[in-house]
Write a protein that binds this DNA or RNA. Structure first.
Length: 303
DNA sequence: GTTGAGCGTT
């Protein structure tokens, strides 16, 4: 079935290097990157059409075309360009390309019946468009639903439609909204440099390993470190070679192994507007947003 | 074993 090694080169005309595959026939992007630092994927020339084709990449795992790598030579992709050395602007724009102009967010679903399951949610919301994540928040001890959950769609249009109306789910009216955390982030200045190469990955589940985090985040840029505190505390740190990659990811919700993790600055504890305003019951998002903006009118050297 | 406004085990 699967070959032990596949042939990979920086360029179609260069001498290929043999790279080992996994037992299931897939190839880890990290294995490719071990030989070609900064690699973010593979492509190959389709012998029939003579066009270049991309190799499927899912969460750091490269999948053989038609279940067989064959003896083709696979060419390494680098972020944005074929250039091994990307400049700083390219690093940031490569990430921005990935998230698009109108990015989708997790939506909070309020008012769920206690009995509603994740499958129920998926079945219901799939009638609006492709669903990539659903969660029902539960009591960790009892497993009982807390009556709210989250959903994420592929298409921004689907998200807009879902927000615009009420939803009858299992006999109760429910509301879908942007979570408060997102409302504040909307006003975050995306070009504000962070100067840190390290990101905080919140809402991790215990089954996500350092290897999986590394393989997942490699698609955005070269990963130099992954740290998961022990004992388990539901978060991790990932460090990139390039601070602009880290900066561009901040505020994102990314889906790893079906769970929505939240990316933020790695050292926000003392300077977190979100937490500051969450101390006020009846807090005003617009007030928070104004405060947020004033933060960015000052040079960040004193922060 | 209950409940019905909220905000996701930093």
């Amino acid at each position: 079935m699967a070959e032990l090694y596949i042939r990979v080169a920086e360029d179609e005309n260069e001498e290929p290097m043999e790279i080992p595959s996994e037992d299931d026939g897939t190839v880890l992007l990290s294995t490719v990157a071990a030989q070609f630092p900064g690699a973010c994927g593979l492509r190959y020339r389709n012998p029939v059409s003579q066009c270049m084709r991309g190799v499927r990449l899912v969460e750091g795992i490269l999948h053989a075309p038609e279940n067989d790598w064959g003896s083709l030579v696979y060419v390494v992709n680098y972020p944005k360009d074929n250039k091994r050395k990307m400049d700083e602007m390219d690093a940031a724009s490569a990430v921005k390309m990935k998230r698009g102009i109108e990015k989708t967010s997790d939506l909070i679903i309020l008012g769920l019946p206690w009995k509603t399951s994740e499958q129920d949610l998926k079945d219901y919301f799939a009638t609006f468009g492709e669903v990539i994540m659903v969660q029902v928040k539960r009591d960790v001890k009892t497993g009982n639903s807390k009556g709210f959950g989250f959903v994420r769609f592929t298409e921004y249009e689907t998200q807009s439609k879902v927000i615009s109306q009420r939803h009858m789910i299992d006999g109760r009216w429910c509301d879908c909204k942007l979570p408060n955390s997102k409302v504040l982030e909307q006003f975050r200045c995306p070009d504000e440099p962070m100067r840190s190469r390290k990101i905080f990955v919140g809402r991790c589940t215990e089954d996500i390993t350092t290897d999986e985090l590394r393989q997942f985040f490699m698609q955005y840029g070269e990963v130099t470190d992954v740290f998961i505190p022990k004992p388990f505390r539901a978060f991790a740190f990932v460090t990139f070679a390039d601070d602009q990659v880290a900066s561009a990811l901040c505020g994102e919700d990314l889906i790893i192994k079906g769970v929505s993790v939240h990316i933020s600055n790695a050292e926000p504890k003392h300077n977190n507007i979100n937490q500051f305003f969450s101390n006020f019951p009846g807090r005003s998002p617009s007030l928070a947003a104004m405060f947020d903006r004033t933060q960015y009118q000052y040079p960040s050297s004193h922060v």
